[in-house]
Nucleic acid binder design. Sequence first.
DNA 1: GTGAAAGCGCTAACAT
DNA 2: ATGTTAGCGCTTTCAC
Lengths: 341, 341
Amino acid sequence: MTIKDIARLCGVSVSTVSRVINDRPDVSPAVRAAVLETVRSCNYIPNNSARVLVRSNSDAVGLVVRGVSNPFYSDIIKVIGREIDAAGYTMVMQQINSSADEIGTGAIMEREKKLRGIVFLGGRSDYTAEELRPITVPFVCCSYDNSFGVLPRDRLSSVSIDDGQTAYRAVSELCALGHRRIAALVAGTDDRSISELRYHGYLRALKDHGIEPEEALVACAGSFSMEDAYRATRLLASGGAEFTAMFIIADAMAIAAIKALEDTGREVPRDCSVIAVDGLALSQYTRPTLTTMCQPSERMGEESVRILLDMIEGRAGNRSLVLEPLLRSGGSVAPPRRARD
Amino acid sequence: MTIKDIARLCGVSVSTVSRVINDRPDVSPAVRAAVLETVRSCNYIPNNSARVLVRSNSDAVGLVVRGVSNPFYSDIIKVIGREIDAAGYTMVMQQINSSADEIGTGAIMEREKKLRGIVFLGGRSDYTAEELRPITVPFVCCSYDNSFGVLPRDRLSSVSIDDGQTAYRAVSELCALGHRRIAALVAGTDDRSISELRYHGYLRALKDHGIEPEEALVACAGSFSMEDAYRATRLLASGGAEFTAMFIIADAMAIAAIKALEDTGREVPRDCSVIAVDGLALSQYTRPTLTTMCQPSERMGEESVRILLDMIEGRAGNRSLVLEPLLRSGGSVAPPRRARD
DNA sequence: GTGAAAGCGCTAACAT
DNA sequence: ATGTTAGCGCTTTCAC
């Protein structure tokens, strides 16, 4: 069923049908009604490939989400969708897993959907100019920046928190309460991801508080999954190392870690305080509720879209924004029971 | 940058470039290398609209996910993707929110991507034959069926659990422990969704155990969100109605409900047992861990793809499969403290 | 092994 | 207000 069939069935030309489909004004009411009726009764749906192929401009903005099941992204996706819509554009979303190549995906979408711009939600932090070449439309990195890359500032837009500084603040909270033996649960310490960034913030905070980091207190889960977080924490807890608090790089991992701590006989926060980074809605419903550094997801989404549209519409060039996270106090942090050293 | 540009740059014809791009054998190595080099250096990416437009057949299978942030779907999506891949097809996923029209989305994708078949993950349970007409390729409903519809059995394929029966079993567990005053937390009691189905299972179980259902013990959240679940449970808990256990239609809602119970002074399971349906991985990490009826997500994904491919490849017609859920005992259920009536 | 040319289904001038 | 027609970028016969 093509536009030609509809035209023939109605006894009009293809352009008339095209006009009706696209809601153009210059068609007589009678013809319009007849065409619409035929379209409905035939369940005709225009071939999008053909439309996109022939149309030169579009109103599509791409959203490439890397890390399919990252709960932190759910909220931001809603915000981004809402803002793109509000600005009169159409959002086209593509989800890929964490091992996939977001730049390649973006480049393909750019051509396929004739994108005007792209929001990357989650991605690598070490882009090179060469890698970025396939992307020829404006884009913005949301929730991460190019910390490990060597790009000049004006080659990339981003909206993120300062991951190192955020971890620093979280760990400092623990120090302020008197904790000295603070363990860390990370995905990796040198994976060029936010895990590495937050881990370095942890190290820096320890040093600034006169605490010598100990390798035995750092648990590497190997991924951001709850399963791995649980396993790594059990290993740490049963390893004989003493600690009164844990800094954990992500909320979801912290929830699993708390379970591991309790399964090995430690009550949170009585025997071990836990502080994390992310600020999932979920973390307000767990027991204990999680004390965590909240990424301002609402603003993050809004600003990402604002920066992108400013570029698309020629109002401004690349811009990088660093947002302030907010400490959300829950029930997972308390002073240490007694000074241990 | 089009195929023409590449052809011109290489001094060959477009058909030769096309052959190289599509990995056809009949091109001399020298020409092939030259074209490939030009393609790379130009960051050329073929226009997919044009390709799809001209190609008649495809190997694409669509996955329409309704309910963007439903954590229960994450696992199934992985399984479905894996199985479709393994069978030599390509998965094209589209996520839509719970208020969107999955049939329309599927119909558009079918034409746009030249789909061979569609998996619907989550959707309405009251399709009519008329509504289904726009879909002309085989499809399968995963995790839900057409309970409220009036379609002949051979018009629709599905893989799901028996939601009513599953709720019945969950509630019966509570009864077996001696609970008589069992509250329910649902999204709605007549929303034509699994909420309604599970609610009816709850009612039936009560009756079969000689318990008179009480309206005052049914909390309607109005949605499947944690926020609404928390609010509705608080309302219920502070309403004066007495109950020693709760049946909750979804894991995520149960996690929020447990928080509400504890915030109103009831400890779970000492003062109130909680049993749910879904079996999220997350529920094994909360405290208490959730006692829940697990949907067999792995098999659900596998069987959905198997049934779909059987239809696509003409081996079989429509088929409906009802899978057995498995009770996962956690720490949220205990006998009532004392008989109350 | 390579090229020329006919469409795929649609939109958007341009005519009428 | 409606019809005619030239492509959009690509694949695929069909020649050579």
